[in-house]
Amino acid sequence: MSAESPVAHQFEDATQQREAATLGMWVFLATEVLFFGAMFLGYTVYRLKYPEVFRLASEHTIIVIGTINTGILLLSSFTMVLAVRAAEYKRRLALITFLCITALFGIAFLVLKGFEYTQEIHEGLFPGSHFQFTEADPYTARMFFYLYFLMTGVHALHVTIGVIMLGIFALRAMLTLKLERLSTAVDLLGLYWHFVDIVWVFLFPLIYLVDRHS
């Protein structure tokens, strides 16, 4: 951090301030780990109880979209890292560019996910009053789709918040005169974005890749 960086009065120097901010972000991410963890636990319990129904239900998700979306999120993490680096070296144009590219990847993810949701709702797989599933006990299959829409929905909400934040940060990067004020904040947004990527890394095999071989 450069000397002209503003340090709040409770901190000794800019390094300590930055470390405190990073630590705070990790505390938030730990609560997020437990928040998503509870849903993963629910999934595990039902999957262990009804493995065959989960396999049949999983075949109805669109694996091509799931795989492309995983690739999109991995690429977006790469561009996010480049944005954090650009902020660190105070390269304004690179920062704005990489923030926008990351946001566009996020939007692409959401559009593809929305397309998949539409297909599935059209097939009657949304666990509402029009739910229909003929290959297995519909009440059990409903549980898979309940967990599927809940977990991917909450994840998509996180992506949406991330995209909005990326947009706000791109605007701030355009308007601010002191770019060093933005560096720590971009770093923290990066941590959030990578965390959302990690959640998807675990969701992808559990939802799309349930014993595809049989």
């Binding site: 730990a30 780990v33 437990l34 636990l41 595990t44």
Partner: peptide, 13 residues
């Protein structure tokens, strides 16, 4: 802090 977050998840699971 990173390890503790995942450790708590481990306890829950």
């Amino acid at each position: 802090f990173v390890l503790v977050g995942f450790f708590w998840l481990g306890i829950m699971l």
